[in-house]
């Protein structure tokens, strides 16, 4: 018992705050965005179904109306954050080599920002009618 042994306990992981260096914050935010996502996703589905098959003018007008636009923006922002955390979790589960892990995490961030900004911009443009 007196030779120095390497004893790795979960404490080491906690000190390093996990593979993404951010502790349990992501886990909690994943739950918060999941809870918020329940009504927002249902609202999103109702909006899509209501717009199905309508002409361009009607779709543009409805999507740009304040209530629908705000719900769509909330759905976009909430989902973007939720799926960013979710994909990061998937990447951290399967990709262990830093040379691949860091670019994958970056690509996740780029993808989410691109999709979210494109979607949000379109809704805002329809709302402000420019």
């Amino acid at each position: 018992m007196n030779t120095p042994h390497r004893i790795v306990t979960p404490m080491r992981r906690v000190r390093g705050l996990g593979a993404a260096r951010s502790g349990t914050r992501d886990f909690w935010h994943q739950r918060v965005t999941a809870v918020a996502g329940i009504p927002l996703t249902i609202a999103f589905m109702i909006i899509v179904i209501a717009l199905m098959g309508r002409g361009h003018a009607a779709v543009a007008q409805i999507l740009g109306s304040p209530l629908v636009a705000v719900v769509m923006l909330l759905f976009i922002v909430n989902t973007a954050y939720h799926m960013w955390i979710g994909m990061q979790e998937i990447i951290l589960d399967y990709v262990h080599d830093d040379r691949l892990k860091l670019p994958s995490l970056m690509a996740n961030t780029f993808f989410v920002f691109a999709v979210a900004f494109a979607s949000a911009f379109a809704v805002l443009k329809l709302s402000f009618g420019v």
Binding site: M83, I90, V115, A118, S119, F121, A122, V123, L126
Partner: peptide
């Protein structure tokens, strides 16, 4: 979850198409 992640491209495409005209 992963499928929906990439599926959000469709949502963005839909909104951009409406906004584009």
């Amino acid at each position: 979850g992963a499928a929906l992640y990439f599926g959000m491209v469709l949502v963005a495409w839909w909104l951009i198409a409406v906004a584009a005209g």
